[in-house]
């Protein structure tokens, strides 16, 4: 299930603009890897390049290599649609489909893979995914109600349930708690700790305490300067990054003495 991601020499461009420069890293399976860094440092772009979501923007392209176990996700014969079925994503703002019920939201992705999904099979997937997202107890009596009627934190867990219903190998989370209150944030963090038993998880966060709490590995990104591309400064065990980082830049950032 969980797979390792191996990135080597990855550059990401939007048209002529180079957003991310020369990133190489290994993202371990069954672990949480946090990407930290100031706004605009390319960490979200890098995250989106891992499942080719950045291609939604016109003229986006990459150089370099991203391997999912032994499969090159940028190989010419690889369909980005297939990549995204392997590598799911959770976004900054909870985005359940507004016209769908809770049930339909969860099953939406699974239906794409299997058009002739039986009713009992679908019920199983919905229950399993909602359990997996720690949401089942809260919504089991109102599965046919609109997903948009849930609270923000519940919506975000609904989105996680929707993502894991497809049974991906990797879950990418782009600041999943930044629109949530502290209680909901705690619920998501607990969930991340549980999910890492089965998935490879990458999380972008602005909250350094969160990175310290949930992640095993931390990668620090920074800009070389205004208008310059973002670069990976340092990546290591989370403990080490937050106690004795190798680079001065990292230390400045995590201690709040930035720049």
């Amino acid at each position: 299930m969980a797979k390792r991601i191996d990135v080597s020499g990855l550059h990401v461009y939007y048209g002529d603009f180079k957003a991310v420069e020369d990133v190489s890293m290994t993202i371990e399976p069954r672990a949480v890897t946090a990407f930290i860094g100031s706004s605009g440092c390319g960490k979200s772009t890098f995250l989106r390049a891992l499942n080719r979501m950045h291609e939604v923007a016109p003229n986006a392209r990459v150089e370099g290599k991203v391997m999912l176990d032994d499969q090159d996700i940028y190989a010419p014969d690889v369909d980005p649609v297939a990549v995204r079925r392997e590598i799911g994503m959770v976004f900054q703002r909870p985005n359940p489909f507004p016209t769908m019920s809770i049930y339909d939201n969860v099953i939406a992705g699974a239906k794409l893979n299997n058009q002739r999904l039986g009713r009992t099979e679908a019920d199983d997937i919905v229950e399993r995914s909602l359990h997996g997202a720690n949401l089942w107890e809260e919504v089991k009596d109102r599965l046919s109600k609109p997903g948009a009627g849930l609270s923000g934190g519940q919506q975000q867990r609904l989105c996680i349930a929707r993502a894991i219903a497809v049974e991906p190998a990797v879950l990418l989370m782009d600041e999943p708690c930044s629109a949530l209150d502290p209680i909901s944030t705690l619920a998501i963090e607990d969930l991340i700790a549980k999910l890492k038993e089965n998935y490879t998880i990458c999380i972008v966060t602005h909250n350094m305490q969160q990175a310290a709490r949930v992640s095993d590995q931390t990668a620090f990104f920074n800009l070389a300067g205004t208008g310059k591309p973002g670069r990976l400064i340092e990546m290591d065990e989370t403990n080490k990054i937050f106690t004795k980082p190798d680079k001065k830049e990292t230390e400045n950032y995590i201690t709040g003495r930035f720049g």
Binding site: M53, V56, A82, F91, N95, L112, R162, A163, V166
Partner: peptide, 13 residues
């Protein structure tokens, strides 16, 4: 909203 379109794409649509 872009968020809804990306939600679908991220599921492998």
């Amino acid at each position: 909203p872009q968020a809804h379109r990306e939600a679908a794409l991220s599921l492998g649509a």
